Simulated scan of single mutants.
Amino acid sequence: MSEPRAGYRRCTRCEKNRAERFFAPKGRVCSTCRKATRRAASHEARVTTTYGLEPGEYQALLDYQGGVCAICRQPRRYRLDVDHDHKTGLVRGLTCRLCNRRILPGAKDDPEVLRNAAAYLESPPAVQFLGPRFHVDNREAPDE
């Protein structure tokens, strides 16, 4: 590896050549890596104190879920919420903000409501009773 040019240092964590301004006077780790470490440590501490997850369990659970929301199975660019039952405190899994803050509260955490919603989407009563009808923007029946 080549030596960084004048005014630059190599970060020992990310191994990038960064300008001196990214380092503390005698520091060997750039400010970006220091902040990332601090953020991760504060998140882990909050998850431990709030939800009782041991260090590393959040990441282990995220890996177990395949890195996606436990409900919609979509990957997210932000950290997933730790979902828990508000009555018992039981940690249920990691969910995206939409599922944790809209879908579950909208269904009042009732599995039957969510099962009914799935049945409704799979077999809409209007189609069963009236036959296909389409919204003004979609008046043409889709090709089947």
Rank of each mutant, 00 (worst) to 15 (best):
S42R: 12
E15Q: 14
N138Q: 10
C96T: 03
K108T: 15
A60R: 13
D110K: 02
P55M: 13
Y51R: 02
R73Y: 06
G7P: 00
R115F: 06
V29G: 03
A118M: 11
V127F: 13
R28C: 01
R139P: 06
L94S: 05
R46D: 11
Y51D: 06
R79N: 05
D137C: 02
P142G: 01
R139Y: 03
L104D: 01
P111N: 05
Y78D: 14
D143R: 12
T37P: 02
E122M: 12
C33W: 01
T95V: 15
L98Y: 12
L61S: 11
T95L: 15
G93H: 05
P25C: 02
A119D: 11
R39G: 04
P55K: 09
A118C: 12
K87M: 10
A141E: 10
D83C: 09
G67R: 03
S42Q: 11
P55Q: 11
G27D: 03
I71L: 13
F129E: 15
C69V: 10
P4A: 02
A141T: 07
P142K: 03
K16M: 08
Y8H: 05
H43W: 11
L53I: 12
A118Q: 06
R21E: 12
L80Y: 09
V127C: 10
G106D: 09
A118P: 01
R39N: 14
K35T: 13
L80A: 13
K35N: 13
Q128T: 15
